[in-house]
Design a protein around this nucleic acid. Structure first.
Lengths: 138, 138
DNA sequence: GTATCTAATGATAAACAATCCTAATAGACT
DNA sequence: AGTCTATTAGGATTGTTTATCATTAGATAC
C-alpha cells in the first residue's frame, strides 16, 4: 500500500508565522487611518529595511483573507487596510482622497431589498460615501 | 484700455463634438453590460482603426463628467462604463468579476442615517454587492 | 469663404498598483 | 537534528490610467 502523505489533498496549507508577517500586521494596527500598502511598507521598512514590496502585498492579502485586517478597495486609488475588522462603511473625501469610518450600523438586511436578484447569490456588500471632509471645506 | 479677451476667465471652455468622441459614446451605448475602457477601445477601433487609447480614456472621462455615461469604479479591476445614467447600484461576481445592475430603488435618505458625520459634507454614495452570478454557480 | 483661436488628437512615455517568477531561506513538524 | 514546503527577496512583468507635446481640426468671428 502506498504510504499516506502527511496531508490530505483538501487540507489547507499551514500558515507560518514569519517575522515579516508579524511586522505587517503590527504596522496596520499602528496606523489608524486606513493606510495604503505603501504606508504599511514604509513603516515595516523602518524596522526591517530589507523587506520586499511583494512580501508586504502578499501578507496584506493573507491577513485580509484570515480576517485579521480589513481590505477596503476604494475608487481611484490604492487599496486601504484597516485594523478595525468588524464590518462597517466608509466615506472618502472627494478632494483629498482620505478615507474615514462612517458611524452607522451595518444594514444586514440590505440584500433582501433587492427586487429581483436574477439568480445571483448575494454574499456581502460595501457602501462608500463621497463628500468633503472638514479640513477640505475651507 | 486693454482689449477684452473673447472669453472671460471663468467661462468653461467649449467642448467640441469630434468624430472620436461621438464614436466613444456610441460604443458605450451599444455595449450593454458595463464595458471596460478596453472593450470600448476595441469597438471604436473596428470603425476607426487609428484612434488612440489615450483618446478613448480622455473621452470616457469627458462623457462621464458631462453625465452622458456613468463611470463605475469597481474593486480589483478596470473602471466600467454604463450608458444607463440614472443612479443605481451594482453587483459584482466574486468569481468572474462581471458587473450587473441591481434591481433596487436608490436609498436617497441613506446619508441621513449616519449617526455622526464628524463634520463631513456627504454628497453621494455607491453600493456594490458581491456574490456569485448564475453561470458561475455551476 | 477665410482667418483665428484653442480644444482635441495620436503616439509615446511615464506613473502607479499589484502580481509573477525563481533560487534561497526558514518556520513547523516529526 | 532532519524533512518538508510555505515564505521570502529582488527584480521583472502586467495592467490600467494619466502626462507630455507637436500636430490637427472644430467652433467662432470676420
Amino acid at each position: 500500500m502506498k504510504t499516506e502523505t502527511k496531508r490530505a489533498s483538501q487540507v489547507p496549507p499551514v500558515t507560518r508565522n514569519t517575522v515579516q508577517r508579524t511586522l505587517v500586521l503590527q504596522a496596520v494596527q499602528s496606523l489608524c487611518n486606513h493606510p495604503t500598502s505603501a504606508d504599511v511598507y514604509d513603516v515595516v521598512r523602518s524596522h526591517y529595511p530589507n523587506i520586499s514590496r511583494a512580501t508586504v502585498y502578499r501578507n496584506l492579502g493573507v491577513l485580509a483573507k484570515r480576517g485579521d485586517v480589513l481590505r477596503v478597495e476604494v475608487p481611484n486609488g490604492a487599496d486601504r487596510y484597516d485594523f478595525h475588522n468588524e464590518p462597517h462603511y466608509h466615506v472618502q473625501c472627494r478632494l483629498c482622497g482620505n478615507i474615514y469610518d462612517v458611524d452607522m450600523p451595518p444594514l444586514d438586511d440590505l440584500a433582501q431589498r433587492i427586487v429581483d436578484t436574477h439568480g445571483f447569490k448575494i454574499e456581502s456588500h460595501q457602501i462608500i460615501f463621497e463628500g468633503i471632509c472638514p479640513s477640505c471645506q475651507n
